[in-house]
Amino acid sequence: MWPNGFLNITTRGASSEPRVYLTFDDGPDPRFTPPLLDLLAEYEIRASFFVLGEACKAYPKHIRQLAEGGHDIGIHSYTHDHPWRLSAAEARAELQRCYHTLADITGSPPTLFRPAYGRFRPATLQEAKALQLTTVLWNRSVVDWGRWGTLAGISRRLNAVKPGDIVLMHDARPDANRPENSQIALREFLRSDKATRLSFSGLSQLIKKPS
Protein backbone atom coordinates (compact mmCIF):
# COMPACT_ATOMS: atom_id res chain seq x y z
CA MET A 1 0.00 0.00 0.00
CA TRP A 2 1.25 3.47 -0.84
CA PRO A 3 1.69 5.89 2.06
CA ASN A 4 -1.02 8.55 2.13
CA GLY A 5 -0.11 11.68 0.18
CA PHE A 6 2.88 10.25 -1.72
CA LEU A 7 1.22 9.80 -5.12
CA ASN A 8 1.29 13.50 -5.98
CA ILE A 9 3.10 13.04 -9.30
CA THR A 10 3.03 15.46 -12.24
CA THR A 11 2.68 13.86 -15.66
CA ARG A 12 1.56 16.72 -17.94
CA GLY A 13 0.72 20.39 -18.16
CA ALA A 14 -2.48 22.14 -19.11
CA SER A 15 -3.74 21.64 -22.65
CA SER A 16 -5.41 25.06 -22.59
CA GLU A 17 -2.10 26.79 -23.36
CA PRO A 18 0.18 26.14 -26.37
CA ARG A 19 3.04 25.24 -24.03
CA VAL A 20 5.26 22.15 -24.27
CA TYR A 21 7.86 20.94 -21.79
CA LEU A 22 10.94 19.29 -23.31
CA THR A 23 12.80 17.06 -20.86
CA PHE A 24 16.06 15.16 -21.28
CA ASP A 25 17.21 12.24 -19.13
CA ASP A 26 20.46 10.44 -18.27
CA GLY A 27 23.05 13.17 -18.90
CA PRO A 28 25.20 15.01 -18.93
CA ASP A 29 27.28 13.48 -21.71
CA PRO A 30 30.24 15.37 -23.24
CA ARG A 31 29.36 14.13 -26.74
CA PHE A 32 25.67 14.95 -26.81
CA THR A 33 24.84 17.55 -24.16
CA PRO A 34 26.87 20.49 -25.59
CA PRO A 35 25.37 20.33 -29.12
CA LEU A 36 21.91 19.95 -27.60
CA LEU A 37 22.49 23.08 -25.53
CA ASP A 38 23.58 24.91 -28.69
CA LEU A 39 20.38 23.83 -30.44
CA LEU A 40 18.17 24.95 -27.56
CA ALA A 41 20.00 28.27 -27.36
CA GLU A 42 19.54 28.80 -31.09
CA TYR A 43 15.76 28.59 -30.62
CA GLU A 44 15.81 30.35 -27.22
CA ILE A 45 14.27 27.34 -25.51
CA ARG A 46 14.47 26.50 -21.83
CA ALA A 47 14.19 22.78 -21.11
CA SER A 48 14.49 20.44 -18.12
CA PHE A 49 17.30 17.95 -17.60
CA PHE A 50 17.10 15.00 -15.22
CA VAL A 51 20.69 14.07 -14.56
CA LEU A 52 22.64 11.15 -13.14
CA GLY A 53 24.80 11.86 -10.11
CA GLU A 54 27.76 9.87 -11.40
CA ALA A 55 27.66 11.81 -14.68
CA CYS A 56 27.45 15.11 -12.78
CA LYS A 57 30.56 14.15 -10.83
CA ALA A 58 32.39 13.17 -14.02
CA TYR A 59 31.32 16.22 -16.06
CA PRO A 60 30.58 19.13 -13.70
CA LYS A 61 31.42 21.61 -16.48
CA HIS A 62 28.33 20.55 -18.40
CA ILE A 63 26.11 20.86 -15.33
CA ARG A 64 27.29 24.43 -14.92
CA GLN A 65 26.53 25.03 -18.62
CA LEU A 66 22.99 23.77 -18.07
CA ALA A 67 22.55 26.16 -15.18
CA GLU A 68 24.06 29.08 -17.10
CA GLY A 69 21.64 28.38 -19.96
CA GLY A 70 18.67 28.81 -17.63
CA HIS A 71 17.57 25.19 -17.85
CA ASP A 72 15.93 23.32 -14.99
CA ILE A 73 18.14 20.58 -13.55
CA GLY A 74 16.51 17.75 -11.64
CA ILE A 75 17.57 14.47 -10.08
CA HIS A 76 17.20 11.24 -12.02
CA SER A 77 19.27 8.93 -9.84
CA TYR A 78 22.94 8.42 -9.05
CA THR A 79 23.71 5.27 -11.07
CA HIS A 80 20.47 4.60 -13.02
CA ASP A 81 19.96 1.31 -11.22
CA HIS A 82 16.38 0.10 -11.44
CA PRO A 83 14.56 1.15 -8.22
CA TRP A 84 12.77 -2.18 -7.97
CA ARG A 85 16.12 -4.02 -7.77
CA LEU A 86 17.33 -1.91 -4.84
CA SER A 87 16.61 -2.20 -1.15
CA ALA A 88 14.70 0.66 0.44
CA ALA A 89 17.93 2.00 1.93
CA GLU A 90 19.73 1.79 -1.43
CA ALA A 91 16.85 3.53 -3.20
CA ARG A 92 16.99 6.38 -0.69
CA ALA A 93 20.77 6.60 -1.06
CA GLU A 94 20.44 6.98 -4.85
CA LEU A 95 18.41 10.17 -4.34
CA GLN A 96 20.56 11.51 -1.54
CA ARG A 97 23.85 11.06 -3.41
CA CYS A 98 22.49 12.66 -6.58
CA TYR A 99 20.88 15.50 -4.61
CA HIS A 100 24.08 16.45 -2.80
CA THR A 101 26.32 15.98 -5.84
CA LEU A 102 24.13 18.28 -7.91
CA ALA A 103 23.74 20.85 -5.12
CA ASP A 104 27.50 20.98 -4.59
CA ILE A 105 28.09 21.76 -8.28
CA THR A 106 25.34 24.31 -8.84
CA GLY A 107 25.28 25.86 -5.38
CA SER A 108 21.48 25.43 -5.24
CA PRO A 109 19.37 22.51 -4.01
CA PRO A 110 17.47 20.77 -6.81
CA THR A 111 13.67 20.79 -6.65
CA LEU A 112 12.69 18.23 -9.32
CA PHE A 113 12.91 14.44 -9.39
CA ARG A 114 12.24 11.81 -12.04
CA PRO A 115 12.91 8.23 -10.98
CA ALA A 116 15.08 6.03 -13.18
CA TYR A 117 12.96 4.09 -15.71
CA GLY A 118 9.97 6.05 -14.45
CA ARG A 119 9.61 3.45 -11.68
CA PHE A 120 9.28 4.21 -8.00
CA ARG A 121 8.49 2.67 -4.65
CA PRO A 122 7.28 4.06 -1.32
CA ALA A 123 10.81 4.60 0.01
CA THR A 124 11.71 6.58 -3.11
CA LEU A 125 8.74 8.91 -2.83
CA GLN A 126 9.24 9.29 0.91
CA GLU A 127 12.83 10.38 0.33
CA ALA A 128 11.78 12.74 -2.47
CA LYS A 129 9.31 14.38 -0.13
CA ALA A 130 11.92 14.62 2.64
CA LEU A 131 14.25 16.41 0.19
CA GLN A 132 11.36 18.70 -0.89
CA LEU A 133 11.45 17.40 -4.46
CA THR A 134 8.53 17.43 -6.87
CA THR A 135 8.23 14.12 -8.73
CA VAL A 136 7.69 14.53 -12.48
CA LEU A 137 7.11 11.82 -15.07
CA TRP A 138 5.94 12.47 -18.65
CA ASN A 139 2.97 11.82 -20.88
CA ARG A 140 4.75 11.63 -24.25
CA SER A 141 7.96 9.77 -25.04
CA VAL A 142 9.74 10.07 -28.38
CA VAL A 143 11.14 6.55 -27.71
CA ASP A 144 14.69 7.44 -28.75
CA TRP A 145 16.12 4.12 -27.67
CA GLY A 146 16.52 0.54 -28.87
CA ARG A 147 15.19 -0.57 -32.23
CA TRP A 148 12.42 2.06 -32.06
CA GLY A 149 14.90 4.93 -31.91
CA THR A 150 15.03 5.53 -35.64
CA LEU A 151 15.12 9.05 -37.02
CA ALA A 152 11.79 8.50 -38.79
CA GLY A 153 10.15 7.14 -35.65
CA ILE A 154 11.40 9.89 -33.38
CA SER A 155 10.34 12.53 -35.90
CA ARG A 156 6.86 11.04 -36.16
CA ARG A 157 6.40 11.02 -32.40
CA LEU A 158 7.72 14.57 -32.03
CA ASN A 159 5.31 15.78 -34.68
CA ALA A 160 2.46 14.33 -32.58
CA VAL A 161 3.28 16.59 -29.62
CA LYS A 162 0.30 18.52 -28.26
CA PRO A 163 -0.07 21.51 -25.92
CA GLY A 164 0.57 20.58 -22.31
CA ASP A 165 2.77 17.60 -23.14
CA ILE A 166 5.78 16.75 -21.01
CA VAL A 167 8.07 15.17 -23.59
CA LEU A 168 10.66 12.56 -22.67
CA MET A 169 13.95 12.55 -24.61
CA HIS A 170 17.56 11.64 -23.79
CA ASP A 171 20.92 13.34 -24.10
CA ALA A 172 23.09 10.41 -22.97
CA ARG A 173 23.40 6.62 -22.72
CA PRO A 174 24.40 6.04 -26.36
CA ASP A 175 24.63 2.32 -25.62
CA ALA A 176 20.85 2.17 -25.19
CA ASN A 177 19.60 5.33 -26.88
CA ARG A 178 20.32 7.40 -29.96
CA PRO A 179 20.77 10.99 -28.81
CA GLU A 180 22.12 11.94 -32.24
CA ASN A 181 18.82 10.89 -33.84
CA SER A 182 16.92 12.77 -31.15
CA GLN A 183 18.78 15.97 -31.88
CA ILE A 184 18.41 15.69 -35.65
CA ALA A 185 14.68 15.05 -35.25
CA LEU A 186 14.35 17.86 -32.72
CA ARG A 187 16.04 20.35 -35.03
CA GLU A 188 13.69 19.37 -37.86
CA PHE A 189 10.69 19.68 -35.54
CA LEU A 190 11.71 23.12 -34.25
CA ARG A 191 11.86 24.32 -37.84
CA SER A 192 8.29 23.19 -38.50
CA ASP A 193 5.21 25.39 -38.66
CA LYS A 194 3.71 23.44 -35.77
CA ALA A 195 6.63 24.25 -33.47
CA THR A 196 6.34 27.97 -34.24
CA ARG A 197 2.79 27.86 -32.82
CA LEU A 198 4.02 26.37 -29.55
CA SER A 199 6.02 27.81 -26.66
CA PHE A 200 8.61 25.76 -24.78
CA SER A 201 9.31 26.06 -21.07
CA GLY A 202 11.20 24.41 -18.29
CA LEU A 203 9.16 22.53 -15.73
CA SER A 204 9.79 25.22 -13.10
CA GLN A 205 7.19 27.25 -15.01
CA LEU A 206 4.67 24.47 -14.38
CA ILE A 207 5.49 23.32 -10.88
CA LYS A 208 5.70 25.21 -7.63
CA LYS A 209 8.15 24.02 -5.00
CA PRO A 210 6.35 21.79 -2.49
CA SER A 211 5.68 23.30 0.91
Rank of each mutant, 00 (worst) to 15 (best):
D38V: 14
A93P: 01
H62Y: 08
F50G: 00
A103Q: 06
L137P: 07
E90S: 11
P18W: 03
L39S: 07
L168E: 07
G153W: 06
F200S: 05
I166A: 01
G149L: 14
A41L: 09
W2G: 11
R97C: 06
Y78V: 00
T135E: 07
N181K: 15
R157G: 00
R46S: 02
T106P: 01
D29T: 09
T150R: 14
W145D: 00
L158N: 02
S204D: 02
F189E: 03
M169T: 05
G53H: 00
L102M: 12
Y43I: 12
S211E: 04
A152N: 07
K61W: 05
I166P: 01
L37W: 09
P34N: 13
G118S: 07
C56K: 09
I9T: 02
I207S: 03
Q132E: 08
L151Y: 10
L137I: 12
E127V: 07
A14H: 12
L66T: 08
Y43V: 10
A195W: 11
V167I: 04
I154V: 14
N8I: 04
E94N: 06
Q126F: 06
L206N: 02
Q205I: 10
V51I: 02
P60Y: 11
R92F: 00
G202K: 11
E44Y: 06
P179K: 15
D144K: 14
L137D: 08
W145Y: 00
L39R: 03
R197N: 07
F50K: 06
A93W: 06
L125Y: 01
H80F: 03
A58E: 14
R31F: 14
L131H: 04
S16H: 13
D104P: 00
R140P: 04
H62W: 08
G27A: 12
S201C: 14
P3Q: 11
P174L: 09
R178S: 15
I63K: 13
A89F: 07
Y59W: 07
I75C: 02
Y21C: 07
S108E: 07
A116V: 03
R114Q: 01
L52N: 12
R92K: 15
L86Y: 01
I45S: 04
P210V: 09
P35F: 00
S48Y: 06
G107M: 02
Q205W: 12
I207R: 14
